[in-house]
Write a protein that binds this DNA or RNA. Structure first.
Length: 594
RNA sequence: GGACCCGUAGCCCAGUGGAUAAGGCGACGGCCUUCUAAGCCGUAGAUCGAGGGUUCGAAUCCCUCCGGGUCCGCCA
């Protein structure tokens, strides 16, 4: 319906004033709360060419609109150069009727775009932490949103399962593990392996300190530390395919995968395909070698291979070490090629922290300018900000990481504590646990997703994540509240499917809610365009807030007119399904009652 | 040395060239003889980091400066 308004305004400019307006200036915005009206048209851009005072022009256009489409425009008012247009109630009823039939199903034109989105990308030497949580949630929500607007989406994970850091935990387990296993100790596999990674670091520090006490300089102590040398030897053996090392590697990685699986399941994270660096780095190496043969890369005297990006305004980038082993960039080139061959996507989105902005600039440049790959242009780095603690950045080595499993469990307990404190317990034990999980995880997910992805965000463990105000539980609560209303309506056998008489009076609160519900589709579309789930989160808060106001002001079952009662129930129902759909995009479940 | 990102109330955060900068937390004051108070209403709190510029109009675009963060590893 706003399209028709714009078209009519355009006609007015063409026929009445003989000018061809710039489409960019022909936009409607929603009218601010302080003013009467539904949509606002700004006339300032036209006053110069038409040599009319803004209020005069706005008034003329308003009059024309009333004359041309009286069935649509009910009234208008002018404040300075702002033309505020109120639509006929008829239109809002019509929207309600339509939606009441189809629910909130999005009706986007089918889109043939194929998108591969990579997220999570863990290392197999330590458990997932808060940084991964943001990554996972952002990736999953973005994938859901893109899928909702009609794109074919493939979710993929890239596991960094090889390298010196993996060897370190392997070595530490071999030396200090006494053949213990996750089963024998009852420790979750990823945590079990992570503990040996920490153990390695501590033992290494001890070795270095010992040497330094004997007067060896720090630099030399590091160079000749037995643990380090052994881990390097182990990596070499791994690359040579040594059966024992490979067997150990497989065993320990499997422990980690079992652990990850549990974490992903609890977080609701899924993938269509998982890539392993151990499978892709060789392809990367091959591509680099071919690049050397083709003369687009060059080999230094020591045997290392480089890409020269000085013409592009960057520097020289290492692609293969002197000993022939691959680096991060090598592997990423291989993975990108493989991924392109697998899915032939129009876009390859990488959900990776903003500390890697430079890496992805380089990756894209090498793919397009050096290797002349058509997929180079499809690379898009969805770069997000760090999660910081009050004392600054999280650091694994200093033990200041917030563990993902611990955090989820704390959220569950916090939900339990909070629910019990409110004295809500008319559920059986299983249902209660399910509800606590829904609320706790919902609070965590919303907390992270509501902030603009590109911004750094603060997490303060001391003040646990809130359940009041702009939070997941607030929105879940709103949903539960509506469900309760609908149960009551069902009990009273009120028929919600019937159409409302379009002459029924429409109050401001009702009209306002319908208006917000109507925005849902464009919000999702915008979120897909900007790859920002935060837009959906903030919209849902606004919607819930508006509903609660309405709930307080307009008691449904006290309304004497049955038509008004049905009208309000229909609006409430639509509100609930919009919340459910929107929260679903964020990967957050909503309860029937809480 | 070079490059990128971010500065909005005590704290967190919205705002993608339009009206009097929107909310949340915290503070203070109201609202439960029941459609769920994890809610609603109200009060106090903002020279939108600073200065210039572009524009009818700038938190938003451009320039300079200040503050915070990140990257430019034969780590991933």
């Amino acid at each position: 319906m706003s399209k028709k308004l714009i078209d009519t305004i355009q006609q007015i400019f063409e026929e009445q004033y003989q000018i061809q307006p710039n489409p960019a200036d022909l936009t409607l915005q929603k009218t601010k709360k302080e003013f009467a009206g539904d949509y606002t048209f700004v006339v300032f851009p036209f006053v110069k060419t038409l040599r009319k005072a803004p209020p005069v022009l706005a008034d003329e256009i308003g009059k024309q609109l009333m004359e041309r489409i009286p069935e649509m425009v009910a009234e208008y008012n002018v404040v300075q150069g702002f033309l505020n247009i109120s639509l006929q109630n008829f239109y809002w009823f019509q929207f309600l009727e339509e939606k009441n039939k189809d629910g909130v199903s999005l009706s986007f034109p089918t889109d043939n775009e194929v998108v591969v989105i990579e997220y999570s990308s863990p290392n197999t030497n330590k458990p997932l932490h808060l940084g991964h949580v943001r990554n996972n949630l952002l990736g999953a929500a973005t994938a859901n949103i893109l899928s909702a607007v009609g794109k074919k989406v493939y979710r993929v994970n890239l596991v960094n399962d090889r390298g010196i850091h993996i060897c370190k935990s392997m070595l530490a387990w071999e030396k200090f593990g006494n053949n213990s296993t996750p089963e024998s100790t009852g420790i979750k596999g990823d945590h079990f392996v992570g503990d040996y990674y920490v153990e390695f670091d501590q033992q290494l520090k001890r070795e270095i300190a010992e040497q330094m006490q004997r007067g060896v300089t720090e630099e030399d102590a590091i160079k000749c530390a037995p643990l380090l040398i052994q881990s390097q030897k182990m990596l070499k053996k791994w690359e040579e395919g040594d059966p024992e090392v490979r067997a150990l590697w497989k065993k320990m990685n499997q422990w980690v995968y079992d652990g990850f699986e549990a974490t992903y399941a609890r977080m609701g994270i899924e993938f269509e395909k998982t890539y392993y660096e151990s499978d892709t780095y060789l392809l990367g190496k091959k591509m680099v070698e071919k690049g050397v043969a083709d003369g687009v890369f060059y080999r230094k005297e020591d045997g290392s291979v480089w890409a020269d990006l000085t013409e592009e305004g960057l520097d020289e980038k290492l692609l293969l070490r002197a000993d022939g082993t691959s680096v991060y960039m090598t592997q990423d080139l291989g993975t990108a090629q493989l991924r392109y061959d697998d899915f032939h996507p129009n876009r390859m989105i990488y959900v990776v922290g903003n500390e890697q902005n430079y890496h992805f600039d380089v990756l894209k440049l090498i793919a397009t300018n050096k290797l002349k790959q058509s997929w180079g242009e499809t690379i898009y780095h969805l770069s997000y900000g760090m999660v910081e603690l009050p004392e600054g950045k999280m650091k694994s080595r200093e033990g200041t990481v917030v563990d993902a499993d611990d955090l989820m469990e704390e959220m569950h307990q916090e939900a339990k504590r909070s629910t019990e404190e409110l004295g809500k317990n008319n559920l059986d034990e299983d249902q209660k646990e399910g509800l606590y999980e829904m609320i706790g995880i919902g609070a965590l997910k919303y907390f992270i997703l509501k902030v603009d992805p590109k911004k750094n965000m603060l997490f303060n463990p001391a003040e646990s994540i809130d359940f009041n105000g702009n939070t997941g539980p607030f929105i879940q609560y709103t949903h539960a509240r509506i469900k309760s209303l609908l149960r009551k309506a069902a009990q009273e056998e009120i028929d919600l499917s019937r159409d409302i008489d379009k002459n029924t009076p429409l109050e401001e609160a009702e009209r306002g809610l319908i208006k917000i519900i109507k925005e849902y589709e464009s919000v999702v579309q915008n979120a897909a365009h900007q790859l920002s789930p935060a837009l959906v989160a903030n919209y849902l808060f606004e919607l819930s807030k508006e509903f609660n106001r309405f709930y307080q002001e307009s008691p449904i079952f006290k309304a004497t007119d049955p038509a008004i009662r049905v009208l309000r129930l229909q609006i409430a129902k639509l509100c609930a399904s919009t919340i459910q759909a929107g929260m679903g995009l964020l990967g957050i479940q909503v309860p029937e009652q809480m």
